[in-house]
């Protein structure tokens, strides 16, 4: 089995490639779940960039987060095609089922609820994304069953 990938491994792979900053941040977040201050400073040093630049990039893109999140991130599409077909009811069902509000993480650290703009599956609206898996054609009564796979 391959060892656990560390931030240093990722930085060695992209040494001297400041243009690869976004790829690097993607990979670090895949491994650590979020971009900590320590990782951001390490990246800045390795690429010879100001830490403010790396932090600026990390906070510009909505797929990156500088705060720890739950193990499963649920992203709910709130763009117009999903809104028209009942995204609000899905949001209410998720909040009720998990006992948290949008933007919050459950006490056991298992779930975080976030908004997202259109994820390009509007043909099966309303839709949500749990980690990298997309669920569409949702109705509030399907929510408990979907969540049960992640509990």
């Amino acid at each position: 089995m391959a060892g656990i990938i560390t931030v240093d491994d990722i930085l060695t792979k992209y040494k001297g490639r400041p243009d690869a900053l976004i790829d690097i941040l993607h990979e670090i977040q895949d491994v650590q779940g979020f971009l900590s201050d320590t990782s951001i400073i390490k990246v800045a040093e390795a690429l010879d960039l100001p830490a403010s630049k790396v932090y600026g990039v990390a906070t510009f893109y909505s797929l990156f987060t500088v705060k720890p999140r739950g193990r499963n991130v649920i992203r709910i599409c709130e763009s117009a095609p999903c809104h028209v077909l009942g995204a609000t009811a899905i949001i209410n069902a998720l909040e009720k089922e998990l006992g948290i509000k949008m933007g919050e993480t459950t006490g056991d650290g298992k779930f975080t609820l976030e908004y997202t703009s259109c994820i390009g599956v509007c043909g099966v609206a309303p839709a949500i994304m749990i980690n990298e898996v997309v669920y569409g054609n949702l109705t509030p009564d399907k929510i408990p069953h979907i969540l049960s796979e992640y509990r």
Binding site: A80, S117, C118, G120, C122, G123
Partner: peptide, 11 residues
């Protein structure tokens, strides 16, 4: 990049 809500042709 296809981010325009309601568009999924490029995907």
């Amino acid at each position: 990049d296809e981010g325009e809500p309601g568009t999924f042709k490029d995907r």
